[in-house]
Design a protein around this nucleic acid. Structure first.
Lengths: 121, 121
DNA sequence: TCCTTTTATAATGAATCCGTTATATAACGA
DNA sequence: TCGTTATATAACGGATTCATTATAAAAGGA
């Protein structure tokens, strides 16, 4: 079993697939329309579309022989939730660094034991 | 040459690496500290750390024999920028659907030419 | 100096990924 | 019904990924 985030992030890791998503950001498109800009065989594009679908990033409807794709409404929900956690940590770290710099500015001599944070360049 | 987004997203695609990032969200940690929770060899962890570093998600400083890691300040900048584009498209699509539903509610008969949007289940 | 700790690198093998071509299937249009 | 269009699937090969074990190197402490 593979975590949904695994599928989502590795789907996003491929430039062709990101280009497909960017194209779909402009609106619904059939497989052939999606394939057109690429110097790549149709089966290769179909495969990418399958990967994007399995990852929950896009959905396909059936319209006769065509299978138009569009972005899935909640495509990025899980990804966003996970990244929000990291982002929050980053801003927390930034505040901490801010505090550290303030401390260094006020008192020039810090005791050099404790969790070493030396040469933090 | 590989796009930075390729590296970032495929770094994020691995659950071990995401766990490492989650751990680093709590603060700086050495390689051994990062390896500790995992039933995995130390070289495997070193490799994951290298991938995260190459993707610009973490940085390492040298402290004697140790190489403490922390989250890179601008780790998610590119990823965020790219995802923001998609998110914007998604909300635009949502608004469009909203408009469509409103239109369907007011007038029941739509001309059936144009970008087919039939049987959109 | 010697032993230990911490980390990185090399060699290797299995699994997965990404492209190809060939082919199947289903709908469309004449 | 027949040929065309749209898409999916299978089979395959090469590249990459992810783990392993073995080993190297560098710093620390006795």
């Amino acid at each position: 079993m593979q975590h949904g985030l695994d599928a989502a992030f590795s789907a996003l890791a491929d430039p062709t697939r990101r280009a497909i998503l960017a194209r779909l950001a402009l609106g619904e498109a059939t497989v052939m329309q999606l394939a057109e800009p690429f110097a790549m065989s149709q089966p290769a594009i179909s495969r990418h579309i399958k990967v994007l679908g399995d990852a929950g990033l896009i959905i396909q409807r059936v319209a006769g022989a065509k299978r138009p794709c569009r972005l899935a409404a909640h495509a990025l929900d899980d990804v966003d939730r996970w990244l929000a956690m990291l982002r929050e940590a980053l801003s927390r770290n930034y505040e901490r660094l801010d505090g550290l710099l303030a401390a260094m500015e006020s008192e020039n001599e810090t005791d050099s034991r404790g969790k070493d944070l030396t040469c933090a360049r």
